[in-house]
Design a protein around this nucleic acid. Structure first.
Lengths: 210, 210
DNA sequence: ACAAGAAATGAATAGTGATTCACTCTTTAC
DNA sequence: GTAAAGAGTGAATCACTATTCATTTCTTGT
């Protein structure tokens, strides 16, 4: 015997894998999935094309993982916003605001995550990502129903509606057809967009005028 | 001079064009844009591949038009539902119900229109289609604000939220990953889905418990 | 230093499907 | 009937990229 995988190697491989992911992610952030080709990824990560395939099954797998990672960060932020002992409606408001606000902060990436056409495997991740948001919202709504701060309702569907309402409202503003697709929005622009969306969403869940 | 386009010819060409559109549309209804290749379209329409290109600039143009046509029908139905002299909230409810109900009646096509990944030109049509819905809803909301049957609000954003909330709620049920993707839903299934969605949507717009 | 095995390389290949175009067939006007 | 012009044809081409794999380079244990 002569070669055995050693800790050093394991680490180096992990680093390369990570670098590939980061670069792929970077390409998506710059120009969406549309212009994230394996060759570009390899070039950017300073490895050969084939090396990408040593670390990932296929292009789809690679980008599914890119999507998943970008997504987990976002979902976690929203989940954090939902924590706390204050009333469910307040927590929901905070979380919804977080969701929209972060998207407007990084419009290009947000557009890719929310609306860019992607291949079916990645689309699967997108469904999961939206479901993840909805699940968190649903839990909060259920809390609210339980403690009486929200009226009885189909929490799952309400949660889905929340996700849809926000995502849809953001698609227009985020859309890269806008000249300024890569500039973040000013605080004022953000507020003007977010406030009415939140009004609608909270009224939808609470059934009372905001 | 010897040949000049005559009425008869103009008509025949229009027929072929129409047949191509219909067949393309049929393929989408059966298997989504994913399996609508130009060759299939040509075969189904009983013309040669090249003939398709005599009638349409490119694949994208063809399917953009397919999308537009499918879409106009739907939008018109919703617009019809919005007509009438009754209170804006009632008209909105009717229209939203129409929207959801029709989608569940033809799940495969609805999924393609709402959620299937498509190429950018067709995606452009999708944005237009969603905006068209939103514009109709917005007009009704503005009516309601004017006559006092709805509270003041950003009608445009509320309308967008309505579209998003419904579309998102339908994506799951319509998704072709479900075994029964091609069977329409029973009246009861439809009601169970639609009722809570409408509750959320109407509360969002009216700010009062439904 | 060496042999065994693993990892990296990147040019070549391959799959997919849109698009073209040289040719044939029809229609029209005379 | 015939010539001009358009319409139709479909096999061949092209474009794009994901993926492969024979070869080279690097790591490790002795």
């Amino acid at each position: 015997m002569a070669y055995r995988e050693t800790e050093k190697m394991r680490q180096r491989k992990a680093e390369v894998r990570q670098r590939i992911l980061d670069c792929a992610s970077g390409l998506v952030a710059e120009g969406g999935f549309r212009n994230a080709q394996i060759n570009n990824v390899a070039d950017k990560a300073d490895v050969a094309t084939g090396t990408v395939y040593r670390h990932f099954e296929s292009k789809s797998e690679l980008f599914a993982e890119v999507f998943r990672r970008a997504t987990i960060r976002e979902v976690n932020k929203v989940a954090e916003s939902l924590e706390g002992k204050d009333p469910a409606p307040d927590r929901l408001e905070r979380a919804l605001r977080q969701f929209a606000s972060r998207a407007l902060q990084a419009p290009a990436m947000a557009w890719s995550l929310i609306a860019e056409p992607v291949d079916p495997l990645v689309e699967g991740e997108r469904l999961a990502y939206r479901r993840a948001y909805a699940d968190h919202f649903r839990a909060a709504i259920d809390d609210g129903i339980r403690d009486g701060s929200l009226p009885p309702q189909d929490a799952g569907l309400s949660a889905t509606c929340l996700v849809g309402a926000i995502a849809e409202s953001l698609v227009g503003p985020l859309s890269p057809t806008r000249q300024n697709a890569d500039r973040a929005f000013s605080e004022q622009q953000k507020a003007e967009l977010i406030t009415p969306i939140l009004t609608f969403c909270l009224q939808g869940v609470t059934g009372t005028r905001r």
